[in-house]
Write a protein that binds this DNA or RNA. Structure first.
Length: 362
DNA sequence: TTCATGACCTC
DNA sequence: CCTTGTGTCATGAA
């Protein structure tokens, strides 16, 4: 049976900032996405454990976080997120992990799953992971938490058990007991909405979820999600995927002020289109579908999309299509003001298809 | 089947 | 003066 590890870099963005600025050693660190409207508008992207103790957490408005910090009088640094820098550190860490294991699935900028099936005992797996964590600490000066189990689901939940800087092992025989008393909302993929609906069915814990039949779950949640919930309750996880193909790429940004003037919105669409195309090119992809994303003054999110006749990687096509979707949207919604605007490319075709497509086009 | 959009999740 | 940014999946209509 497989042995899988989940590695989670502890309050990663904040740790990265500490690495390049030792002055931050003794203060709390809050990483912010400033939206550019007014002093402190924007949201908290990440908070270190000191800040979390003050009640600050990801998603919270920056102004509110600042209030919490000043209330307690603690020293807390509020820094703008520097994604490219964190990405560099992340890539070095992932490479380092890769040297110790056969296969790795990079789940996000600060998380990865590793296949440890080349070792044959959990003791050996623990040794490998302690070495990996030590190297990460020595070479990048950031700590990592890890979980080891028979699959991704269990490994991930195990890594959550002892944070920061911990390691938890859940061998196959102990999975059932490990999960039984866990609240269902701690299962990966079960958010507040699903947790509420499960509670209505009488399942607050995994043990209770386990007692609901698949049929029942499918009736309530639909085929895909129902079966997935059932499997999670049994402690079954999916396979490691070393590279999974991107299905869409998007950028969204807050406008300086709510508006419905194209002269305000157009230049932002232009910039976002260029950013998205940059990434489309990096992946050597061609997109066939374009979407414009609108967040209204009331914070409601809407999208409008259009499928192209042929795949392309043109920035002009992306820009003009998004622009056209936006004017359409404004025309059909005479009363809405736009707060945030986004551009998405999707329905990718890999570069190989190029000659064929071109042939069809001409 | 394809297309368009909203629900939902995570951070 | 108030919340970012990115992604996957389900669903209903054409």
């Amino acid at each position: 049976m497989a042995i899988i590890a989940h590695i989670d870099l502890d309050s990663f963005f904040a740790s990265c900032e500490r690495v390049r600025n030792p002055d931050l050693a003794d203060s709390g660190v809050v990483i912010c996405m400033f939206s550019g409207r007014g002093q402190d508008s924007g949201a908290v992207s990440a908070a270190d454990y000191t800040a979390r103790d003050l009640g600050i957490h990801a998603g919270m408005p920056i102004s509110q976080a600042r209030q919490l910090a000043s209330d307690t009088g603690r020293d807390v640094a509020f820094l703008a997120a520097d994604k490219p820098f964190y990405k560099e550190v992340s890539e070095r860490v992932m490479d380092l992990i890769r040297e110790h294991v056969d296969r790795i699935e990079v789940a996000s900028i600060d998380e990865a799953y590793a296949d440890l099936s080349h070792v044959d005992t959990y003791d050996a797996a623990v040794n490998v992971m302690q070495r990996v964590r030590q190297e990460i600490r020595e070479q990048e000066d950031v700590t990592a938490s890890a979980g080891i189990g028979p699959n991704k689901l269990v490994a991930k939940m195990a890594s959550d058990q002892d944070k920061p800087d911990g390691l938890t092992t859940v061998p196959p025989g102990t999975v059932s007991a490990f999960l039984a008393d866990m609240p269902v909302k701690e299962l990966h993929g079960v958010g507040p909405k699903t947790a509420d609906r499960l509670q209505e069915l009488g399942a607050s814990t995994v043990r209770e979820l386990r007692d609901i039949s698949v049929q029942r779950l499918v009736t309530v949640f639909g085929e895909t999600r129902g079966i997935a919930l059932h499997e999670k309750a049994q402690g079954e996880g999916s396979e490691i995927l070393e590279e999974r193909e991107k299905k869409q790429l998007s950028r969204i940004e807050t406008l300086p002020e709510n508006t419905r003037r194209m002269s305000d919105i157009r230049p932002v669409i232009r910039k976002l289109s260029e950013d998205v195309i940059g990434r489309v090119e990096n992946h050597d992809m061609r997109y066939k579908r374009v979407a414009a994303i609108f967040v209204t003054a009331e914070l409601e999110r809407q999208t409008r999309s259009r499928t192209l006749k042929a795949p392309t990687r043109s920035v002009e096509t992306l820009f003009r299509t998004a622009e056209s979707l936006t004017t359409d949207f404004l025309e059909t919604h005479p009363d809405v003001e736009v707060r945030r605007i986004g551009v998405r490319a999707a329905a990718f075709d890999s570069g190989e298809q190029q000659t064929l497509d071109r042939f069809q086009q001409e």
